[in-house]
């Protein structure tokens, strides 16, 4: 039997067989490649709640650079980083963290970055405050208790860049009429997306969440010019000289459009040109008739 096998080997394959076999394999592998390629597009979408480590390249570049070695996971002192596993929504083998359960503690020396062998975590990032892992967003003003007029400020207080990344905006509490609302405001120019605020949010489901920046941010159309900025740049109005607005008010009365409203310049009570009685205004010109 071995002899016959040997003989058929000696005879070799015909050109027809060879080409047929090659085409078959090439087509099979080609189809497989198409399948893998398309499936990979789906499998490569990072879910909104998975946050990449600091310094991670933009997602599409990251997936070409990260070789799934897990070195960053090993050198994270707080053990917050995980690798995506088959069946997870995160692309298999790539590092991420979940802000609600384990946020980035923003180590000053950023130990996860220098161990990355391929620059998937950009070694140029040396100041953790410059990291942009995502952006915190106060996603629900209906449940955030600050909007209900209760004192909380937990997100503001745990923020590692407190006062810059999250500030408190004092607003009038219209419900009670006499209290203030302490509204947390996130500033994208300072927020690193570390997720400490999301972790700390006292709600059962956090009202402040870290999202990938592209999901969290709006973007003004490129053609927009903000008049006041352009004016400042140019040192004056660009369209026409600012004309003083005339209201044709009685003497001693001015009007401020931006807040104060009607301003009475009167020196004494007698000189007030407008009566305090509204009927006088309505009946103006009818006196003695």
């Amino acid at each position: 039997m071995r002899h016959s096998v040997e003989k058929s080997k000696d005879r070799g394959v015909s050109r027809r067989q060879f080409i047929g076999q090659t085409l078959k394999t090439a087509c099979g592998v080609g189809l497989m490649g198409m399948g893998l390629g398309f499936y990979s597009k789906q499998a490569s979408t990072l879910p909104a709640m998975a946050v990449r480590p600091p310094g991670a390249l933009p997602e599409d570049e990251f997936l070409g650079a990260c070789i799934r070695c897990g070195a960053c996971v090993r050198d994270c002192p707080y053990d917050i980083l995980k690798l995506g596993q088959l069946g997870d929504e995160v692309p298999t083998g790539t590092p991420y963290f979940s802000a609600r359960t384990g946020p980035c503690e923003m180590c000053e020396d950023i130990p996860c970055i220098p161990v990355c062998p391929t620059n998937a975590l950009d070694h140029a990032l040396t100041d953790i405050n410059e990291a942009r892992m995502g952006l915190a967003v106060v996603v629900d003003q209906e449940t955030c208790i600050a909007f209900l007029g209760l004192r909380c400020e937990v997100c503001f207080n745990v923020c590692p860049i407190r006062g810059d990344a999250i500030t408190l905006d004092y607003q009038h509490n219209a419900r009670s009429g006499k209290h203030a609302l302490f509204i947390p405001i996130v500033h994208s120019d300072a927020c690193t997306g570390c997720g400490l605020c999301e972790k700390a949010c006292i709600l059962d489901e956090a009202a402040i969440k870290v999202f990938p920046t592209h999901l969290a941010k709006g973007e003004l159309g490129k053609h927009y010019r903000l008049g006041w900025e352009e004016k400042e740049k140019a040192g004056g109005s660009l369209v026409a000289p600012d004309a003083k607005h005339e209201y044709h008010l009685p003497e001693g009365v001015r009007y401020d459009l931006q807040g104060k409203g009607l301003i009475l310049d009167a020196k004494s009570g007698d000189e007030i040109p407008v009566s305090s009685n509204p009927l006088d205004t309505l009946n103006r010109g009818l006196e003695g008739k």
Partner: peptide, 11 residues
């Protein structure tokens, strides 16, 4: 990876 810019095989 040439075509997609991503390490597809590792998925």
């Amino acid at each position: 990876p040439l075509a997609t810019g991503s390490i597809v095989w590792e998925l």
